[in-house]
């Protein structure tokens, strides 16, 4: 995985939405890189902007500002025609296996859609061969070809979604909460599938989820988002062993562990996530942070590289004096 040039470079990416009460900062000045073949996990609670970020970087939503470079070229500046070609390389799998499949199309029609839109095959026979092949790849029995999504369970629907995203042989796939709507057993089956696909075809993933144990399982590196900003970014091991940002610490401590008698010392955060509409200067987390100081209110902490490969956006990372907990 050692490469000089990262495959994806996102710089100062912003996405604001106009609302009646002011600008909603869904993604606010976010920068990171992704290497070829790796999985970047994107975690955060609802409304932190992780899904918006996933959509903006592949231009399903138009960015307000910033760059998203793939192989050195900023796709946010691409013309419509060039972007259409680019879509073949950059794909997305959606969260909801119910609403992400057109209920009027059969399984084979759903998987054929990207092939038809991009006119990949000229003959129906070739196309059908590809569809069958894709169904094998994602573990869908071929006899389901003419089934309709409403006849299938969530796991198999999600397999259709995955097959559809693989149809154009992409290199980069955004997985937007691909297992959140599924039961644990089915979730495990899909996670294994995604894993083996990556090994087999060398895909690069962005894995978006609110479930930390799932993210940890699939990711090489993890970015933690809070209110539109990345507050911490590092390899998965360091992040779980020694979280640097107070929010990451609280988030990790909040997971109920499925083990008896292993309760963590929980950091209970005060209050709720504040509104992302016209957020004030300073650290976004300071209102709930157990370690806040005056400067946190005035100065927005930059995401800085504290040690090689470990980024954190906190003025006092490593110098926090924990009042409680470990």
């Amino acid at each position: 995985m050692e490469q000089t040039h990262p495959m994806v470079e996102v710089t100062n990416l912003k996405k604001y939405f106009k609302t009646k009460r002011g600008m909603l900062h869904a993604v606010d000045d976010v920068s990171f890189t992704i290497r070829k073949g790796e999985t970047l996990g994107l975690v955060g609670e609802s409304g932190c902007g992780k899904s918006t970020l996933g959509r903006v970087m592949i231009r399903l939503l138009e960015a307000t500002g910033g760059e998203a470079k793939f192989w050195g070229e900023d796709i946010l500046r691409y013309s419509a025609g060039k972007m259409k070609d680019m879509r073949r390389k950059v794909q997305i799998v959606f969260q909801d296996p119910y609403s992400s499949l057109n209920p009027r199309l059969s399984v084979s029609e759903l998987i054929a859609e990207p092939l038809l839109v991009n006119r990949v095959y000229s003959s129906a026979a070739e196309r059908n061969r590809k569809i069958a092949e894709l169904m094998d790849t994602v573990g869908l029995a071929r006899r389901l070809m003419n089934a309709y999504p409403h006849e299938l369970d969530g796991g198999r629907r999600q397999r259709i979604g995955i097959a559809r995203s693989l149809a154009l042989s992409p290199e980069f796939i955004v997985l937007d909460e691909p297992v959140s709507a599924l039961d644990v057993c089915i979730q495990a089956q899909i996670l294994n599938l995604l894993n083996s696909l990556q090994k087999q075809f060398g895909y690069t993933y962005v894995f978006i989820s609110h479930n930390l144990s799932v993210v940890k399982h699939v990711s090489d590196r993890i970015a933690v988002m809070y209110l539109g900003k990345i507050v911490e970014l590092s390899d998965y091991k360091s992040l779980f062993v020694e979280p640097l940002h107070p929010y990451t610490q609280a988030l990790l401590s909040a997971i109920p562990l499925p083990k008896f008698g292993k309760k963590r010392d929980r950091i209970i955060l005060e209050g709720d996530v504040p509104s992302p509409i016209e957020p004030p200067e300073g650290c976004r987390f300071q209102g709930r942070c157990p370690y806040r100081q005056d400067v946190c209110k005035e100065k927005t902490p930059e995401l800085r590289e504290l040690e090689p490969g470990r980024f954190v956006a906190c003025h006092f990372a490593r110098t926090l004096v924990p009042a409680s907990g470990k």
Binding site: L60, F94, S100, N102, E113, V117
Partner: peptide, 26 residues
Amino acid sequence: NQEFVEAAKAVGSSDLRIILKHIIPN
């Protein structure tokens, strides 16, 4: 606003195709 419309956009479908094939039948 359903995700399957977004999915159609993600594979590069034109607006006309999205309206005719994905929205109107539904």
